[in-house]
């Protein structure tokens, strides 16, 4: 087993934890955390492949993609937080009601 494989396997586990968490958890904040964990898994897989393909330096393309991806993910998470806090402020709800 090589180093990158440890991390690429981890990335798959994190991705599944995240995607499960989005559907299973109820609290808004936990759902947002779950999407970020999903993202963490995805980024980890990119970077692990970059390490595998290293020559004198690691493959810079996945690194750049991950930096872009992290920033994009954080922007959407910030928006999600704003929505969650607004909803809480207006209704006191911390999760989606199930009656729909």
């Amino acid at each position: 087993m090589e180093t990158y494989q440890i991390y690429s396997l981890t990335s798959a586990v994190l991705f599944v934890i995240g995607i499960g968490g989005v559907f299973i958890t109820r609290h808004f904040i936990k759902k947002i955390i779950a999407t970020m964990i999903m993202g963490g898994g995805v980024f980890l897989s990119f970077v692990s492949f970059a390490e595998r393909d290293a020559l004198t330096f690691a493959d810079p393309v996945p690194h750049a993609l991950v930096i872009t991806g992290i920033v994009v993910a954080v922007a959407s998470a910030a928006f999600a937080l704003a929505l969650a806090r607004r909803i809480y402020q207006q209704t006191g709800d911390i999760s989606f009601s199930n009656d729909k």
Binding site: S11, F15, G18, M38, V42, S45, F46, F49, P62, A73
Partner: peptide
Amino acid sequence: MAYLFGVALIY
């Protein structure tokens, strides 16, 4: 994110 995981694997 699901889409991006697929992209990572393809890359």
